[in-house]
Design a protein around this nucleic acid. Structure first.
Lengths: 224, 224
DNA sequence: GCAAAAGTGTTGGATATACACCCATGT
DNA sequence: ACATGGGTGTATATCCAACACTTTTGC
């Protein structure tokens, strides 16, 4: 082995951080400006993987260091390795999907120039980050329907209307209120807490929580 | 940026090549012997990603160079980045799932010491390759039930009994013959060719083919 | 009493499951 | 004629989809 020939790749992590804010999916973006190739663009937060950490660890570290986010749900999405994906040189990136509940996303002041942008209107991002965002949203949509991953996007206690509108905004289609409730309650996915929430207007709603303590693989929805 | 500090990662590809042979899932393994850490073990075929190729391209190249396999279906599985996963140093590996139809797997002489081994009985593999094999089989099981990926594991024309036994061997459970046929035919997933196959014994069976030309995402099975 | 959001049941259709016998062939 | 694997239909239960009105609250 000739180590100097083999040590060619710069390994990075890029993070698609998703939160549903005001009923629409948002992504956390950071400004980039690397003339001449990238001018006044936006990109996903990311950074290099250190020699002594795994990609997962880098992801957690970058979330903390660059975004001020702690204890978020994250899962590996895919690895992007196009030779020219970064104008600075060969950088291979492991992309992660990270989910932030709405209250957490609102609650903490964003560092630097980070900002939440509507996922459907991010425009042209730097690098291949549009591809990563598309993969993240696709994965999220798939998992919403087959797992209890929604718990990672919502407060610990929530009304069923809130949960339904989360589903509707991510899936991009309306769901039937009665079928939605029926299914989630009958399947034991969510459980009533007994507490009531008085919204600004209208009848108070009951607060629910997810039954299990982790993300579980079950058929959450078919069509509703 | 200090490039010399950043250029740390060796990027590799490891390939979980699956074929269903004699009604049981097999993986293609290669012997490894790297004392003192790895002695007389087996591992998935793999190799380094070159500076001028993507991970996908490296996967295709390695399949050809190391395994003599051309034009196989492949998809990225996940990236494994544990710091000590390779005793020789820091090697991050992008794992791929590759599927080979039974006739192709039988038809070509295996180079080197490569051999097909029953996936359920591979024993302790080198590196983290047991993890990769587990991920590959899990992905395959999931996709068998929701896509037409089975086409990548079987000859272009096949009997429904062959297809069913493929499903059964990968999923590890028996399926009802009538329901299996009903569903695949009713959903238009497979189409009869009109040709008959005279097996060694018993009534001749009709040959079918998959209807679409690609792997399609549909609900292939529920329980049968 | 009105506006706003919460909550609740039924029915018809489709889909899934369970199950057992006859058919075509080679020997 | 028998052994072997191929092929077929029906009845039941479950699940899904569509659908509209009543309740509780604040103002």
């Amino acid at each position: 082995m000739r180590p100097h020939k083999l040590r060619f790749a710069i390994l990075a992590v890029d993070v698609a951080i998703i939160a549903v804010l005001d009923g629409t999916p948002h992504v956390l973006l950071t400004p980039v400006h690397l003339p001449p190739d990238i001018i006044d663009a936006y990109a996903l937060p990311g950074g290099l993987v250190r020699p002594d950490e795994t990609a997962e660890e880098a992801c957690v570290r970058l979330l903390s260091e660059k975004c001020g986010l702690e204890d978020c749900y994250s899962e590996q999405l895919a690895t992007f390795s196009a030779v020219d994906r970064d104008p600075r040189g060969r950088v291979v990136s492991v992309a992660y999907l990270v989910l932030v509940p709405e209250p957490a996303a609102r609650g903490h002041g964003l560092p630097d120039g980070l900002s939440w942008r509507e996922a459907a209107r991010v425009g042209k991002l730097a690098y291949d980050h549009n591809e990563i965002v598309a993969a993240a949203l696709g994965r999220l949509r798939a998992e919403l329907q087959s797992t209890t991953i929604a718990r990672q996007l919502i407060a610990p206690q929530f009304t069923l209307s809130e949960l339904q509108s989360l589903y509707e905004s991510v899936l991009g289609r309306a769901l039937d209120k009665r079928n939605f409730r029926k299914k989630l309650i009958a399947d034991g996915v969510v459980r009533p807490t007994g507490k009531m929430l008085q919204a600004a207007l209208g009848r108070p709603s009951e607060l629910y929580r997810f039954a299990g303590s982790k993300v579980e693989v079950i058929s959450v929805l078919s069509g509703s």
